[in-house]
Design a protein around this nucleic acid. Structure first.
Lengths: 231, 231
DNA sequence: TTGTCTATCTCGTTT
DNA sequence: AAACGAGGTAGACAA
């Protein structure tokens, strides 16, 4: 990994064209050839970058660039796509290289899968008398998160999201429409369950005749824990 | 901006819980207090990070940590949310600070907005005899990209995307359905216009009775330039 | 490899 | 401030 702090200016051309005016920035050149241009603020997203696989060619500035004070020109070219990042280097304030080795990587805990598992275990949150048919019920257009049966024997298709927006409602619509064609399952009701349901999504879901269910993650987890402690 | 290359181990707790085993990494501490942990590959996204606003507290390791070789413990706490990043520092290989100043930021060239403006100007790309009603035609569920009238006086709703996928077709479907309820506009045809239309999206669009229009950005821009040169 | 879905998304714009 | 949409989305996982 090479770290350079320098006055620089950059142009990106690929899916879009973008320009980065002259300023002092951090330039990170990673072992895989990828390049990041970071400012001293913002979040983790670089101002500009090139993803691997890519390669960098360093060349001398032409006369016009020399006049402008450019000392080096870096061209970072993507190996597969027509994406290119051109960096003009002015004054260099820092330049160092470091061996980092391979990283073992991040270990995460689950979120949505956890919600789905918990709702399957606490299926009566959907309503009294509900029973689970199965999780990840397979259909031609993908698995339905949870398929259940309500107290009256009707089928219930449940779509679970962490954040419920309009896309999730559309997805549920496709599932319910498809499942209702199955004479063994029809009538199928739709339930849209999420930790947070966006207002627009709620309106659309209700318009489509679905039930909205807001999931309280902490509460469900508490129930889960109690459950675990008991057995 | 502070750059540290060090052996480190980290824990994140917030929206999720995550752990980063001990390894040599780049730690970037930005002027706004945000922190990035980067490995030497897999560009763009850090292994772990804390977004601003946040603050960092450095403390001495406890006895157990000292035994494990920890020399410093950094706690980065988000100022508003309950997000925390704990970093244990082992050996430090590099540590430097740099003044970068405020960045002027990225200047982009247009993407979808540009496509929309150009198609409005070259509305006959949709078909001969078409006339523009207006761009960003407002409806209850959001603005329609372009509303036009065809040679026979029928209304045409155009949804523009850089990349046309299934979401865009669903969006257009909602618009066309809504607009068709307006006696002053009906009948309304749907046109799905994009630089690139995914096969699945094309199938769905045609199934819904929409016209697909592939936009050639370079060609349209050329026309645009010629147009600009003439006037 | 390709497609699909999630994200500690980020980042803008609008309401 | 909250919500909505787009992204050079990136990254992960299934088909």
């Amino acid at each position: 990994m090479r770290l350079v702090v320098a006055e620089c200016q950059a142009h990106y051309s690929g899916r879009l064209a973008a320009h980065l005016p002259r300023a002092r920035r951090l330039i990170v050149v990673k072992a895989d050839g990828s390049v990041l241009l970071h400012s001293d603020g913002g979040s983790y997203k670089p101002l500009n970058w090139m993803s691997p696989p890519c390669s960098m060619a360093v060349r001398e500035p032409d006369d016009l660039q020399k006049e402008r004070g450019v000392t080096e020109v870096w061209r970072v070219q993507h190996s597969k796509a027509d994406d290119r990042l051109d960096i003009e280097i002015f004054d260099v304030h820092h330049d160092s290289a470091h061996e980092l080795g391979v990283d073992p990587g991040l270990v995460k805990d689950g979120v949505e899968a956890h919600l789905q598992r918990m709702l399957a275990e606490q299926i009566d949150l959907v309503g009294p008398g509900h029973t689970l048919i199965r999780r990840e019920y397979p259909t031609a257009i993908g698995p339905v998160d949870i398929l259940a049966r309500d107290a009256h024997g009707a089928t219930v298709a449940i779509e679970i999201k962490r954040r419920g927006d309009i896309d999730g409602v559309e997805q549920l619509t496709r599932y319910v429409e498809l499942l209702n064609r199955d004479p063994l399952l029809t009538p199928v009701r739709g339930v849209f369950a999420a930790q947070e349901i966006k207002p627009q999504a709620r309106v659309l879901a209700i318009d489509r005749g679905f039930t909205c269910l807001t999931l309280n993650y902490e509460e469900m987890k508490g129930y889960d824990d109690v459950d675990s402690r008991l057995f």
